[in-house]
Design a protein around this nucleic acid. Structure first.
Lengths: 233, 233
DNA sequence: TGTGACAAATAAGTCTGACTTTTTGGCTCC
DNA sequence: GGAGCCAAAAAGTCAGACTTATTTGTCACA
């Protein structure tokens, strides 16, 4: 489950990536390839490969005669799963979770509406199964098992939408849900109303009722926003 | 405006990236670093750097004794601006524009609602300016100028939302709008109703009316979906 | 004094060749 | 026919020399 353990350059990224995203080197800081290679005790070839990856994430820019410059966070590829993981592991994890939850609240209802139109029979079955699993594990301090079904549910919705951009957010949603269960303060048992909503969404998708699926999912995400105290006055 | 002209490895990516995203090498195809280096007439070091970048985009996976394997498109980092550009330049540009337009339709209304709450005075002014610019260029076959204001408008909305994930979609939306003006069939003048909606969104944001800003923006994105014949029966 | 061109320093970029490591596929041997 | 061993293959790593572009500083000239 680690990030990119393969290869020496991966090891370098495992520590340099989190450092940069955590703001250890403020925007504009200049790093030197040779110094970094010394610090991590790797050859320049390996160090250069690592820098190339950071560059493709727009975390740094490499310029001749200057060095490797750290870019302002506004330039970062914040949709890169690796960057997301690095940031979630860092200090501004709460802030990151909020951003991602807002994104969820925008995307998931629309995805559910599309899923109601495009979902295959297998996907409908999987959805119902997930919902039932959530019901079954919603009582008795079985949060870990509940989480598995919850993540699977949302992943199926995003996949069944038929939109590849939505589908790729499955990992992000899973990360958010995991973060909520682990880190955030949560009741020993999930909110019964939320469980019911999931069952109803599965119903609506099965019946092809796009408007209802969208509205119900919007209720779910509103709940998620409220948990993080993100709501309109 | 090119992609990554800097460096030899960038040149390699400029042709290898589009080839992979265009499906020239089907998922599972195996490429050999040495052969690629020969083909592009670069050293192995440079070729390795290029492969590392492709790897970080999850376009390929490099394994010892096997080679560089092309991954199925479901694994690609489709939110990477570079990947988006490559795919938009390729054969399935229409499909890509549809995916992105659907994403827009999900994100922009929510972003507009947030902008109504968080927009600064400067951002409100910029928004009004953009809207006025759109009105001024909405007649007389001035699509190029209109497009500039249109792109700026949506970028301000996304930025003013205060959510970094939304803000980073500014480039994507700009790409979609450009694509619509250039490639797709469009009337010589933009739809007057759409122009009015933009002005009203600017108003709503200025007045802090989140619900109205969201609803109006939803109308705009519904229009965008209809242009591409994406609509519910 | 300011401005231009030129020269030197610097750090990334590139190439080459040798070596290491891991994985796989086949082969032998039981 | 299966377990284990061996060799080939390809990526991975390293070290060193060289190239190129960019910046900075200096010096001469207006």
């Amino acid at each position: 489950m680690s990030t990119s353990g393969r290869g020496l350059h991966g090891r370098v990224l495992d520590t340099l990536g989190p450092e940069i995203t955590a703001g250890v080197y403020p925007a504009g800081s200049v790093l030197l390839t040779d110094e970094l290679a010394q610090r991590f005790d790797v050859s320049r070839s390996v160090m250069r490969e690592a820098v190339r990856v950071l560059e493709s994430m727009h975390l740094v820019a490499s310029r001749r005669r200057v060095g490797v410059t750290v870019l302002p966070s506004a330039e970062w590829n914040v949709y890169d799963p690796q960057v997301i993981r690095w940031r979630l592991a860092g200090a501004d994890r709460p802030r990151q979770l909020r951003s991602l939850t807002v994104l969820r609240s925008a995307v998931e209802p629309v995805a559910a509406g599309l899923a109601a139109r495009h979902a295959t029979a297998e996907q409908c079955a999987a959805l119902t199964e997930c919902a039932l699993g959530m019901v079954a594990t919603s009582r008795g301090h079985r949060l870990e098992e509940y989480l598995v079904h919850d993540m699977a549910f949302h992943r199926v919705i995003l996949t069944a939408s038929g939109n590849e951009m939505f589908a790729r957010l499955g990992d992000v949603v899973a990360e958010v849900l995991t973060g909520r269960t682990q880190h955030e303060v949560m009741f020993p048992d999930p909110d019964p109303a939320a469980v019911t909503l999931h069952v109803q969404v599965a119903e609506a998708v099965r019946e092809g009722d796009a408007a209802r699926a969208e509205a119900l999912t919007r209720e779910i995400t509103v709940g998620a926003l409220q948990e993080l105290d993100i709501l309109a006055p």
